[in-house]
Every structure is written in structure tokens, then in C-alpha cells.
Design a protein around this nucleic acid. Sequence first.
DNA 1: AACTTATCGCAACCCATTTGCAGTAAGTCA
DNA 2: TGACTTACTGCAAATGGGTTGCGATAAGTT
Lengths: 155, 155
Amino acid sequence: MIANTGVSYGVAVATSDAIERTLGAIRDQGGRVTDQRRAILRVLFERSDHVSVDDLVARVHDRLPDVHVTTVYRFLETLAQMGLVTHVHVGHGPAVYHLNDRRHAHIVCNACGIIEIIDEAMMGQWSVELERSLGFSLVDQHFALAGRCGRCRTG
Amino acid sequence: MIANTGVSYGVAVATSDAIERTLGAIRDQGGRVTDQRRAILRVLFERSDHVSVDDLVARVHDRLPDVHVTTVYRFLETLAQMGLVTHVHVGHGPAVYHLNDRRHAHIVCNACGIIEIIDEAMMGQWSVELERSLGFSLVDQHFALAGRCGRCRTG
DNA sequence: AACTTATCGCAACCCATTTGCAGTAAGTCA
DNA sequence: TGACTTACTGCAAATGGGTTGCGATAAGTT
């Protein structure tokens, strides 16, 4: 709460609402609401970009220092099964997780590591081209494309 | 040699030539030619598609049963530094290696695991599109795209 | 308050790959 | 040919991301 004062009140409330709604959904399906889960969700919702499990754990520890990595992995798995989060591999390192708001693919800059979103329409178009030439259609991309961002190319 | 009789004599000779030429290049740069290396190259050249290290080791063992995985990893790394092989990740499992003949990207079928080649031209076109929309250009893809092949889609 | 069982923390494990090290042998040179 | 240097090898152990088994804890229910 207090850590949230940099953000506008409305946004903070919306975030809390979203968290509570998610926890409600978990309870509805027979799951249990714990401090650990609330803390993990808070980090995910406050910082919904692409977070590695280690980052996530570190940020959860700001509030709840004893949460174990395993707990995070298991809860992320639960959220994934609920369709709320997905993970992407952006290279050889650990996977990164994000809220599953919209369907998209990722491109990561080889040089600086920044991750950008490739929207569904463009991927759809590529899928059509691939279907014509190879018979393959594209499915949800679990691995990011590698590229080079404008800044790193010109810098 | 004998294992090669299914293939035309000319091809077998060409393969042997390519292997000896590679070994020569290794010697030229101060490297050493060993039975292990010759056997590994033979497998790579005879079956230059996308082989995992485990497959590679298994096939090397047909000739030389005591070659260690570590040796294979290390020699592949050497060949990679010479620009002769690359590896791609086709999913969560082990990487697959192939001779670095032509530049290309890979798409792997989610269902049956078959790997197809996406040619440079198509990738180049995508890169141009990405550059226009996000400022990113595509570089060599270390991870395969995920898709579904025609057979698995209709079957 | 008693009870059921989902979740937790921990330790141990799995898999692909890497590293340290002592022994072997490839290439070189007398 | 034999001595010599050092690249390469095999093995064991480590690394890193992630998963699993299990007894203890605590959320939700009666």
C-alpha cells in the first residue's frame, strides 16, 4: 500500500481490485488465498512486464522475506493453468513471465535485452505466408525472436 | 565407408573430401586431428540435418564406442568458432546442431517435432516489416519458431 | 474448536551443458 | 626413430534453470 504512493490512487485501487478478483477466482476453484500468493500477485500486477522468477522472488521478498522460489514456480504454474500468465524464453537464461492480457509474440534485442511486443496481426500475416510456402501455421510463440533494436543498431 | 554403400560412390567421396578438408583446416590453425574428431565430422557430414548431441553421440558410438559427450560438446564448440556449425533450440529439450551451409531460420511443429527451414528471403522481408513498425531488425535466430505442420493440422 | 487438505519451505533431484584435472597421444623437431 | 610440447580426451564434479517428494503449517469448512 504505502509502497504504492508513487502511483495514482485510482490505479492502485484498480490494481488491488484486480488482485482481489484473481484471489477470488482461485478461492472459487477450491484454491487457497495466502499471504505469499497475494504478494506474488501484487508484484505481477504492479509490474506486469517480463519478469524472471528470480526478479519476482526478489521483489516479493521486499514484503515477505521468506517466500521460497519453489512457491513462486508452483503458483505461476497455477496461474498459467488458469490462463492468467504465460512465460517466454528470451534467450539462454531464465524464462520471463507476464500477465496474459493480450496475445502477442516477443522480440528481444541481442545487444541490450529490451523486449518488444510483436502484435497478433503481424504474426497472423506471417502465419499466412508460412502456410502458403511450407504448409506450417504459426502457433503461440514460447520463444522470443532475436533482433536488434534501433538504438543499438545506430548507437 | 561400408556403412555408406547406400549412397552413391561420388557422394561418399565428396563427403570424405569435405571431412578431410575440414580436418586440414583444423590442423592449419594448430588443432589436432583425432579419431574422435573424424568420427564426429563423419556423422555431421553424412547426416547434416538437425541432430541433438545425444543423437550425435549415439551415432558416433557405432564406430567409436568410448567417445565421451564432453568431447562432442567441446568439438562442436570448436567447429562453431570456425563458423562451420551452429545450433538451434527447438523447444525446451536439447539444442540441435547442423552444418552452417546456408543462412536460415527454423520452424518446428508443435505436434510431431518436424523441423522445416524458413529461407533467408522471407526472414529478410519480415525484418523489413519489423523495422518499419518497431525499429527492430531480425538477426540470426537461435530459437526456432513454433508452428504446426500441414500433416498435423489436418490429420 | 476440530478437521480436512491445499499450500509451504526445504532438500534432493533432473536435465542439458560446462569446467577442472590428470592422463594420453598428435604433431614437431632433433 | 625417440624425446618433447601441449592439444585433446575421459571422467567426475559443478552449474543453472526448473521440478518433485515430503513432513509441517495453516486456510477454509463443519
